[in-house]
Simulated scan of single mutants.
Amino acid sequence: MNKTSSKTLFLSMTIMSTLMVLSSSNWITIWMGMEINIMSFIPLMYKSKNSLLSQSSMMYFLTQSMASMIFIIMILVNMYGWNNLYKNTDMNMIIMLSMMMKLGMPPFHMWFPEMMNKMNWDMCMMLMTWQKIAPMYCVSLSIQNNMINMSFIALSTLSGAILGLNHTSIRKIMSYSSMNHMGWIMSCILMYKKLWMMYMILYSVMMIMFSLCMKKYNIMYINQLNIKYIPVMDKINMLIMMLSIGGIPPFLGFLPKWIAMEYMIMSNEIMLLLMMTMSSLITLSYYLRMISYLSMFMSHSQKWNFLSLNNKKNNMYMFYINMILPMIMLLMNFM
C-alpha cells in the first residue's frame, strides 16, 4: 500500500509540475516546475533495486541538473540586467541549447538512447512523451528563425535517422526515432507556434499505443517479434502503428508531417524540408525491418509460445485510431 501511494504521489507531482511550466508567466517558475519534474520522475524510475535502473536514474539526474544550471544562470543574467555581457539573442540561444540537452537532441543526445535501453516500457513511454512537453514549451518561447536553429533541426532529423540503422534494440530504435520527431516539432515551432502542440499530441498518442503493445508481449529486441507468439490481429495493429509512426499515408502519423510540409513550403524553406523528408524516408528502413519480422504471421511461431491461442479478443482500438486520417481528409474536402 505504501509503495502504491508513493508511486501515485510522484506521478501526480510529475503531471502537476509540467502543468505548472505550461501555465507559468516568468522564467523562474518555469525553472521551479522543471526541477520538481526531475525530482518526481527519478523515484518513479528507480522503483526496484536494479543496477541498470540506478545507472539510468543517475544519468538522468546529472544530465538534467547540468541543463538546469545553464538555464538558471541565463535567467539570472537576464533578470539582473547584465546585458553588456550577453546579447538577448545569445541568451535565447543558450536557453534553447539547455532545453535541447534536456530533450536528448543532437549533439547532446548520448545519454538518451543508453538510458532508454536500461528502462522498462512504462518509463520509456513517459520519457518519450510527457517528459518532453515542458522543455519543448521552453524551446517555443526562446527559439528564433536563424541559420543556427535550422542547422540544429537538420542535424536532429538526420542523426535520428542514420544512428538508428545499426541497432536491434527496439527501445534504442525508438529513442532515435524520437530525435527525428523532435526535429520535426522544432520546425513546426519555427513555422507556426501552435502547430507543435498538435504534432506533440499525435506523436504522444502513437508512442503510447506502441509502448503498451510492446509491454504487453515484453518485446525488447527485433528478433523477439518473430519468436514470441502474437495473435494475427495484434500483429496487424503493430504493423499499422509502425507505418503510422514512420509517417506513411493514409495513417494518422502522416497528418502532422503533411501540415508541417505545407507551412515550410509557404515559408520557402525548401532545402530544409528536403533534408527532413529524406531523413524520414531513412527512418522507414528500420520500421520496415521490424515489419519484415511481423509479416511472417504464423510461420516461425513456436508451439510452446501458443499460450494466448484461445484468446479471441481483438484490440481494434489501435486500428481505428490510426485510420482516422482518411476520415479527416474526407471532412476537409467537404468543408
Rank of each mutant, 00 (worst) to 15 (best):
N2L: 07
N2D: 06
K3T: 01
L9K: 02
M13Q: 07
I15Y: 02
M20V: 12
M20H: 14
S23V: 09
S25A: 03
N26K: 10
W31G: 05
M32S: 14
G33M: 06
F41C: 07
I42M: 13
I42G: 13
M45P: 08
Y46S: 04
Y46Q: 08
S51G: 03
L52R: 09
S56M: 08
S56Y: 10
M58T: 15
M58N: 15
Y60R: 11
S68A: 10
V77W: 08
V77M: 10
G81F: 08
W82H: 10
N84S: 12
N84M: 14
N84P: 08
L85Q: 09
M93G: 03
M100Y: 02
M100K: 01
M101W: 01
L103R: 02
G104T: 02
M105T: 01
P107A: 04
F108D: 00
H109T: 02
E114F: 14
M119D: 00
N120M: 08
T129V: 03
I133K: 05
P135H: 06
M136W: 03
Y137L: 05
S140F: 00
S142Q: 11
Q144D: 09
N149Q: 11
M150V: 07
M150D: 09
I153D: 00
L158R: 10
L158N: 11
G160S: 14
A161H: 07
L163P: 08
L163E: 15
L165E: 13
K172D: 04
I173N: 11
I173R: 13
C188I: 05
L190C: 12
W196A: 14
W196V: 12
M197C: 10
M197S: 11
M197I: 12
Y199G: 13
M200V: 07
M207P: 00
F210G: 10
K216M: 03
K216Y: 02
Y217W: 02
Y217F: 04
Y221R: 11
Q224T: 07
Q224A: 12
L225S: 14
N226K: 12
I227D: 15
I227R: 09
I230T: 12
M233K: 05
K235C: 06
N237K: 14
I240A: 15
L243D: 03
S244D: 10
G246I: 01
L252T: 09
P256M: 03
P256S: 04
K257A: 01
K257W: 00
E262D: 01
I265Q: 09
S267P: 05
S267L: 12
E269K: 15
M271V: 14
M271W: 14
L273M: 15
L273S: 12
L274Y: 11
L274S: 15
M275D: 03
T277H: 00
T277N: 00
M278I: 06
T283R: 12
L288N: 01
R289W: 01
S295F: 03
S295M: 05
M296N: 13
F297C: 06
K312L: 09
K312G: 10
N314L: 11
F319H: 13
I324Y: 01
L325V: 04
M335T: 05
M335K: 07
